[in-house]
Design a protein around this nucleic acid. Structure first.
Lengths: 178, 178
DNA sequence: ACCGTATCTACAAGCGTTGTAGAGAAACAA
DNA sequence: TTGTTTCTCTACAACGCTTGTAGATACGGT
């Protein structure tokens, strides 16, 4: 995403008007690494402009997304997350407990569709989502997490249930920053 | 996912009761490769059991998901998709116009988080989502697709806008089946 | 066949997001 | 500055997907 000043020019160049509300949202997004939801942007913006409405936030975020200045992500946390980092191609890691999202800087050149019956898809992009637990959720709730899993396993009983998406397990690292 | 008969036993073994509605849903899901939404399962089930309610479909799909017999996916199409294929680890390709979802059978052993400032995530799984256009949407709407993109580009004007997620472009193949 | 309990349907409400209308402010020209 | 046009604002209501509630119904073990 560009700087608030550059976004101001960009908006004007596209026939959009620049208001105090929008500039406030520009500033909120600037350098934000948390992939905030619209609600989170709303909360942050409201600390500057108390009367801003949630609809305005959605409107501006959608405008920025149309202009390619931010990315709107759906990583399965129930609401759209917005990522101001469009300069560097990257992927994401999502905490499956608290929904925290962070960038993962790496390109995986080996990712391509395998041979086989041709489905005829013309693929334009591939995104990788890592799922796991963030440091905070690991520290704060590892016991209850184990209990939850145990309860599910117990309920399943002797019928060997397979927990979905439990392919690989490893403690790994990711680059921070945006 | 197991056969309807096996699912019947599994449900009973877990204190769940087996009704005509549920068995109907079992049969609908059996061998389904389309990653149906709850609504789609509802429509299909209603052809067998006319009085089934959408709530029952959600309930049963969630039960199956808890038992690990199906996967609930959020691939950004606005509604949860359900995948009866839990036997083989796989990824997905999504049509960004019609929302069609298909399985992609491949493992990408090189996918892992890179070194860098440790975010402390403990990652349990990695999923890859390929996005593009399916054969039908390519054939039926390539012109309007171009127009849509052109309109957006025109609206952006001389302000060099970057279309999100336009990293790689290639026509590729994927294996069908579930 | 009986009974306890899970499940059914119908209805309504929840959540995130978007449409609508009238008031208000930005942009640009004179 | 002033005016005019157009876009944007807020507030409110509605949308689509999903889940909670209540009473009726059906399962399943005895």
């Amino acid at each position: 995403m560009r700087t608030p000043d550059e976004l101001t020019q960009l908006f004007r160049a596209n026939g959009r008007k620049v208001t105090a509300q929008r500039q406030c949202i520009f500033r909120v997004l600037q350098g934000d690494v948390t992939h905030p939801s619209a609600e989170a942007v709303f909360e942050a913006a409201r600390r500057d402009v108390e009367t801003i409405s949630l609809k305005t936030v959605y409107q501006t975020l959608n405008d920025l997304s149309e202009l390619g200045e931010i990315l709107s992500l759906d990583v399965g946390t129930g609401m759209t997350r917005f990522d101001p980092n469009v300069e560097d191609a990257h992927h994401h890691v999502v905490c499956r407990r608290c929904g925290k999202v962070r960038d993962v800087y790496a390109d995986f050149p080996d990712i391509s569709l395998p041979d086989g019956p041709d489905l005829g898809f013309e693929v334009g992009s591939a995104e990788v989502i890592f799922r796991g637990l963030c440091a905070e959720c690991l520290a704060a709730g590892i016991d209850s997490a184990e209990i939850d899993s145990a309860e599910i396993e117990a309920a399943v009983g002797n019928a060997t249930a397979r927990s979905p998406g439990a392919a690989t397990t490893a403690t790994v690292t990711a680059t921070a920053g945006s």
